[in-house]
């Protein structure tokens, strides 16, 4: 399979997945025994006004039609309502939230900074902590330090993040009054406040996720340290420090970086629980708001956006591997 064809196939898959995800989301929420038009009906509501609202929101059309409008809108933009007071949703239009009176794309853009700040900071932190601990454990294999780190890693994996997060808020936020307990300050407004508000969520997310990286790094390192070329390097008299950092760690890094790319992609799509626990108005919070209000356009838009990021992260990793390793293109395995 040529590289071009490989890329084309992966892209087609991406489009297919996004279409399916958006359709499923539409279908499921249309089945829901709740009427989004009721939101827009006002108080007191009359059956006539309900009809008007339904027609305006396009809810009187079939699911397939509604979904198709959505798909078209992504590429062409959409216009709602009458000429006198039309509502424009410029492309890429991920729908228009009538409950919020705003294009979904705009709402997501407004929230993405929060999610990105949360995700990137935490990811950097857990990469450093996780890889560091894993490398140390591997080099000190079999020692008490190694066992301690690995038990710590399992413990970290087992702790529910919301529990740790909330306890962190209570301890560092309220009892010790060291860090702010909630809210978000945009980076542009004040970089210091921005970081200060994010310290706690970063730490919680990172400490729990680092465990996975610790384990992965350790096992990869052990494998590399046992490999022939490392033995050769040692035999040539290269210092142990150099062996570890230049050779073992570098090679062990490939799967770690892969995992990192995927994790980061997933986090960028929004972290429902972390954002909830720390009152962070990110994409995950937006999704929960949409669920709470049965705001179908917002829901579908955010779902598709999130799915897109996740799928793109997958795609990116696949492509990089595909370029690096022709066997992947043939459908083989990397190992």
């Amino acid at each position: 399979m040529t590289l071009v064809k490989f890329l084309a196939t992966r892209l087609a898959t991406l489009v297919f997945v996004l279409l399916t995800v958006s359709f499923l989301t539409y279908a499921l929420f249309v089945l829901l025994p709740a009427d989004p038009a009721q939101l827009a009906c006002g108080r007191p509501c009359t059956p006539e006004r309900l009809e008007t609202a339904r027609a305006f929101m396009g809810l009187d059309r079939s699911v397939v039609e509604q979904w198709w409008e959505f798909v078209r809108g992504v590429f062409t933009g959409r216009t709602f309502g009458s000429a006198g007071a039309s509502i424009d949703c410029p492309r890429p239009c991920l729908g228009y939230s009538f409950a919020r009176n705003a294009p979904v794309t705009e709402l997501i853009a407004g929230r993405f900074g929060v999610t990105a700040s949360l995700a990137i900071g935490a990811a950097v932190l857990w990469l450093v902590v996780g890889v560091g601990a894993g490398a140390v454990a591997a080099v000190r294999r079999g020692t008490a330090l190694d066992r301690g780190l690995m038990i710590g890693a399992i413990t970290g994996v087992s702790a529910p993040s919301y529990l740790v997060g909330l306890l962190g808020i209570l301890l560092f936020g309220f009892t010790l009054d060291m860090v702010p307990v909630s809210g978000y300050v945009p980076f542009a407004q004040s970089p210091v406040d921005w970081a200060w508000h994010l310290v706690l969520p970063w730490s919680v997310l990172a400490l729990l996720s680092a465990a996975v990286y610790t384990r992965l790094t350790r096992s990869q390192m052990l494998e590399e340290l046992g490999s022939p070329y490392v033995r050769t390097a040692r035999a040539k008299g290269i210092t142990e420090r150099r062996v570890v950092t230049r050779h073992a760690l570098r090679n062990a890094a490939i799967p770690v970086v892969t995992l990192f790319a995927l994790d980061l992609g997933a986090l960028l799509g929004g972290t429902v629980i972390t954002e909830r626990v720390f009152s962070m108005p990110g994409v995950g919070a937006l999704l929960m708001e949409a669920v709470g209000a049965t705001d179908v356009p917002l829901l579908v838009g955010v779902t598709v956006f999130t799915a897109a990021i996740v799928v793109i992260a997958n795609l990116a990793v696949d492509v990089v591997y595909g370029v690096l390793d022709p066997r992947v293109r043939r459908g083989g395995r990397t190992r």
């Binding site: 799967p255 995927l262 994790d263 997933a266 972290t271 629980i273 990793v317 591997y321 190992r335």
Partner: peptide, 22 residues
Amino acid sequence: LDRSDELVAPTSSAASGAVADS
């Protein structure tokens, strides 16, 4: 719930989980 977990569990990617699962 947060798809980070979901994602990272071996997925379509040739790279990540598959390596390990195998």
